[in-house]
Amino acid sequence: MEELFLKRFAEALEKEVGVKMEDDFREYEEWDSLSLLVILSMVDDEYGVNIDANHFAGMKTVKDIFEFIIKKSA
């Protein structure tokens, strides 16, 4: 599940080198104003989880998003 999440995350941002759980995603070169929407749609489509912008603002690493999904789908 972890691996699949990392794969989907990397694909959504077209990050060929892949992503790691501890990465601060806002530091990615590919990160721009639309990336937020791309990640939110991916999480909604693949996991049926909605993250609102306030929540998202408090997330820093890829792992924060992953853990939120786990919590919500538990």
């Binding site: 959504a12 077209e14 639309l34 929407l37 791309v38 749609s41 991916m42 489509d45």
Partner: peptide, 12 residues
């Protein structure tokens, strides 16, 4: 739906 093209699935 607010959907960047990149995130747009045909079904949606």
């Amino acid at each position: 739906k607010i959907l960047p093209l990149k995130a747009m699935k045909v079904d949606s």
